[in-house]
Write a protein that binds this DNA or RNA. Structure first.
Lengths: 197, 197
DNA sequence: GTCTATACGTAGATAGAC
DNA sequence: GTCTATCTACGTATAGAC
């Protein structure tokens, strides 16, 4: 199953995300197309497995930075976002699957989508930690604040993927704006000067 | 040609942007597929024409708001962005073509892309007007400032299109953030308190 | 677990008649 | 300008043998 998914990513990288073909995957694996049905019941199931893999990998990338939340939330958030953006540019195919809707008829199953829900929860926690540390105003964890945060990073990713898909995160015209975007967010939700205690 | 493009949009709306089929278009027009080749030399040419149409429509949407730049640039920019976002949600299919890369192998021709260049120029002019009016710091028209602005709005659009594709602009969870996003941008580039004269 | 054979459907594009 | 006929190619998926 691993090899099928790896090969599928390879094919998508060359032909386009929506142009994945099971026959081509089988060809590259030295098999016949019907054999793939031993591992996945349909093409959509492969997309779904790829979606889930992408989400899980993003989760893994984020995880090591969560521990830093206790000490300096803002730095931890920055580090986490930077790491995620790096992953995106190293895995543009999976990123397209996660951030866009490139495949007609494909919608991730609830199962594949679950890690995404957890990540949103992590984000909320992270922002809350920053609020508690006095680095952000309480509004930052409102529905609006969280949505605004996701807008910023989905914007960076979308612009980079559509305008310069084949760059590394540190060189991309848009991915390099990650720290600036973060700065903008933190300034917008600057805590009011009022005393905490 | 108009009818071909209209029908193509219809098909894409139902089957997905990447699943456009000339046969289906011909079928709906009561024609045979070869007849379409009288109007467009290939499928990619149709995508290209659609891309150009989308870009031009966006330009038209923006145009009436450019005149307001002389008086109150910030309001004009806000009105223009709001109008564009409305257009996007009313034309999600074309928007996907403009903002994402959903079609394997399709890249807009320089000709189709030209209106996009003009729009970036308009944006630059608009931001410059706001700087001149003392509503924005000069940095806002730097490469970084302009890119950051596009990131904000491509983020709103991407999040909305992938999470709630079938909503109107005034109801979308993300499109409703348009004014807030603008506010964030303007605050980030607040002119320094120094005297102008 | 992999295969052959096959059903079944689709597509984009061209040649050449009318 | 539209058609028929055709080329050429590809795809997903299933049945059933080994």
């Amino acid at each position: 199953m691993r090899e099928v998914l790896d090969t599928a990513i390879e094919v998508m990288a060359e032909e386009g995300v929506a142009a994945l073909s099971l026959s081509e995957v089988a060809r590259r694996m030295g098999m016949r197309p019907p054999s793939l049905y031993q591992y996945f019941p349909s093409k959509m199931a492969i997309y779904d497995a790829l979606f889930e893999r992408g989400m899980r990998q993003m989760g893994e990338v984020l995880k090591p930075h969560l521990s830093g939340l206790a000490e300096d939330p803002r730095s931890a958030i920055a580090a986490g976002q930077t790491a995620m953006i790096s992953w995106v540019m190293a895995n543009p195919v999976l990123a397209q699957l996660l951030y866009w809707r490139p495949v007609p008829g494909f919608e991730p199953s609830p199962n594949a989508f679950e890690p995404a829900v957890q990540q949103l929860e992590s984000l909320r926690n992270a922002l809350q930690a920053a609020v508690d540390a006095g680095q952000l105003a309480p509004d930052a964890v409102s529905e609006e604040g969280v949505a605004l945060f996701t807008v910023l990073f989905s914007g960076v990713i979308s612009q980079q993927l559509s305008n310069e898909p084949s760059t590394s995160a540190d060189k991309g015209r848009f991915t390099r704006l990650t720290p600036t975007a973060l700065d903008m967010f933190f300034r917008y939700y600057t805590p009011t000067g009022g005393q905490d205690r």
